[in-house]
Design a protein around this nucleic acid. Structure first.
Lengths: 217, 217
DNA sequence: CATGCTTCGAGTGTATACATAAAAACGGGC
DNA sequence: GCCCGTTTTTATGTATACACTCGAAGCATG
């Protein structure tokens, strides 16, 4: 694996996991020394992060980790809604729609599970599997690429809101609805279920996010 | 302006204008010699082109200009439709919707113009103005960013289909419909008009594109 | 004491040299 | 004559040295 890829993965993970908080300056020399590589791979990685929107290039000061404004959340979810809804529609119309019954059952089991918070990691894996399956079934590479870029930001936002068992179970039920709608080859229903899920998700994040009062230095 | 930006703009323009046809290998040393800069800015520019999807990195052979498959056209326009429709919806709901009456009149005049093919360049500028106005009125930076990436590909596709006066006039009428719908603050109508326009545009491109039979070397 | 200029420094932007890996070409063996 | 291994070449990947710009701090002056 190339060193620049390693640097990119490392920085991207650290930004998503809030080890690098918004506003942190990512100096080339500093990062190159910390990660044990030259400036060149670091430069490449930083450029990719800027392209992803995870960092912004500031004139003279280098690149800094981008802010995650609560005021931008609505915009983010508007874009996510149109993309995920179309993705779900296409998946429900695809030949592989029937294969989603198995996934739907898995979500049903997850929703009924008692020890939901303990299995949060496994649950997120299941969500990732559903997303991936929808992408494959929809078969639109442009849509998948746009969503891939978007989901990085969402992983980052997710860390803002603490997960509670109730929300996780509700999320499992909503995902089950989406999977069942696709399995039944009903595009409109799949899109509607997706809209419902994203609305609930956004509402939860907005309610359970500690108000990040802007620091006035 | 930085050298890497200049290289990026140059290569991007040449790709969009089909001076660099799909499959062309963009070797770092070759381009650095041609453009009179070092390899470092060229590398950065190539990385940005790959991120844009205008080029793909091939293992060992460097990066090559990406193909524009007619089979991918439908996928591209699906994504474009959902993004542009939502954008038009948001613009029609915005406070600046009324300002689109002026643009709509400009499109009406363009549609009525006799010497349409001669004014093609000016007409495309007008289209760009409408796109920009919709972006601003919609006020969703994530949506705008996604569309900005997409429109580059569309400029490239547009060169495939030769413009004829009839199509340009029809396009002007369709754009006028969109602008009027926004000016009348009717989101559903704006989205519908956008869908109609994109459908016609895709149909035209598919019909008037010379069948690019794959070359077997 | 405030404001403006100057100078210093830290950081990026660029060029180039070196390492490395993959692809093509060449030669030897079958 | 064909195929496989080796070599050579050519490309990218990485490291580092140098130049230049922007910011900040410090000093001088009004």
């Amino acid at each position: 694996m190339r060193a620049s890829d390693k640097v990119y993965d490392t920085l991207r993970t650290e930004i998503v996991e809030w080890q690098l908080v918004p506003g942190t300056v990512l100096a080339e020399v500093e990062q190159s020394e910390r990660l044990g590589v030259s400036r060149t791979p670091v430069r490449e990685a930083l450029a990719r992060l800027v392209a992803d929107g995870l960092a912004v290039a500031q004139r003279g000061r280098g690149v800094v980790v981008s802010e995650v404004g609560k005021d931008h959340l609505e915009d983010l979810f508007v874009l996510r809604r149109v993309l995920e809804c179309e993705n779900a529609r296409l998946a429900a119309d695809s030949a592989h729609a029937g294969e989603f019954a198995e996934l739907a059952q898995a979500f049903d089991r997850a929703a009924a599970q008692e020890s939901m918070p303990d299995a949060a990691s496994g649950y997120y894996q299941l969500v990732a599997r559903l997303d991936e399956s929808i992408d494959q079934a929809a078969g639109n590479s442009y849509l998948s690429a746009a969503l891939r870029n978007l989901r990085v930001h969402l992983q980052r936002v997710r860390r803002l809101a603490q997960d509670n068992p109730q929300r996780l179970r509700a999320s499992a039920r909503e995902h089950a609805s989406i999977a069942w709608a696709i399995a039944q080859k009903n595009p409109d229903l799949a899109a509607a279920a997706t809209t419902v899920h994203l609305h609930q998700s956004l509402t939860h994040i907005k309610n359970y996010t500690p108000t990040t009062e802007r620091q006035h230095p």
